[in-house]
């Protein structure tokens, strides 16, 4: 049994999600009585393998569970894959997988390109590290869901504006539901991203005080990209809220959500390929300098 569980790799659940995505895409080509069951079966199989993989890593890593960039991306993918499965079961006619599964696969790809080494930590920084990671995870998931809802809103609005009946197998949720989702996720994303950024600053200060990590400078790509993302999300949420009573508010919010996702994607790419001092162990121990301001 242990041999079987330890043998589950990223390829296992990636392949399952790919098959589920192929099933979703086939909606546009032909009808099938068994496709729904196949989609759920492959999605569930992928999620089970994904869960076992993460649990196995959490149980066997010497550091705090799931504390590497690799784990963070896989955890974000897991949250979205769970959402996909739940939405597919509750709304089998909506092709939500066409939008969610590529993001899930993209996050798995980002995980593969990221370091599997856990971020250096001590008992003093573990809680702040967990808070920082959790808020960033929540913000990323909220931005992704909001963008998916925004794209669906634009597709549905386009269909209604062209006065076309819905395409078989490609039935979108109502504009009302999608607008509600984009508005709420944008607000949640702004709050959680801000909380993630602030907790990151606190974490950096604690690290510095205890000399655990090198100080992350203000000009570090991670600080810049996170700052830019938070600034954008706050502006987008404020604009969306201020336009709430305008006739075109839903369309504006849909676009703001999509742009937020683009900003998040750029931020992730920057994080994957850019040079940073974020989460890097100190080269040499720092002298204690508690009075110095943390970035």
């Amino acid at each position: 049994m242990i041999e079987f569980v330890s043998g589950i790799s990223v390829v296992c659940f990636t392949a399952s999600y790919l098959v589920a995505l192929a099933c979703e895409a086939s909606r546009l080509v032909f009808r099938s009585g068994v496709r729904g069951a196949a989609m759920i079966a492959f999605g569930a199989a992928g999620l089970v393998a994904h869960t076992i993989f993460l649990v196995w890593r959490a149980a066997n890593e010497p550091a705090v569970p799931l504390s590497s960039a690799f784990d963070w991306y896989l955890l974000a993918a897991w949250v979205l894959a769970s959402g996909y499965l739940w939405l597919t079961i509750s709304n089998p006619k909506t092709p939500v997988g066409l939008f969610m599964l590529p993001v899930v696969l993209g996050l798995i790809g980002a995980a593969q390109l990221s370091s599997r080494d856990p971020f250096p930590q001590s008992p003093a920084t573990q809680i702040w590290g967990a808070i920082h990671g959790s808020f960033n995870l929540a913000a990323s998931v909220a931005v992704t869901i909001g963008a998916i809802a925004g794209i669906m809103w634009l597709i549905q609005a386009g269909r209604l504006a062209r006065k076309q009946a819905p395409t078989q197998g490609f039935r979108m949720p109502s504009l009302e539901k999608l607008a509600l989702t984009t508005g709420r996720t944008l607000a949640i994303a702004a709050w959680t991203a801000a909380a993630g950024f602030i907790s990151g600053l606190v974490l950096n200060a604690v690290n510095r005080r205890h000399g655990l990590l090198e100080t992350v400078p203000w000009t570090d790509p991670v600080v810049l990209r996170m700052g830019a993302l938070v600034a954008w999300l706050v502006i987008a949420a404020v604009v969306s809220r201020s336009m709430a009573r305008q006739p075109d508010a839903a369309r504006t919010t849909a676009w703001l959500s999509i742009v937020s996702f683009a900003v998040l994607t750029l931020s992730i790419l920057w994080g994957v390929f850019g040079v940073t001092r974020h989460g890097v162990p100190p080269v040499a121990p720092l002298p204690t300098a508690p009075s110095e301001a943390a970035p």
């Binding site: 009946a165 819905p166 949720p173 109502s174 539901k177």
Partner: peptide, 23 residues
């Protein structure tokens, strides 16, 4: 998809269009 799409104007108006806007 035989029988899936609606054929009367009122049913199309409500199910395919009004329901597309309102939840």
């Amino acid at each position: 998809a035989l029988g899936r799409e609606r054929l009367s104007i009122p049913s199309v108006a409500v199910a395919d269009f009004a329901r597309g806007v309102f939840e």
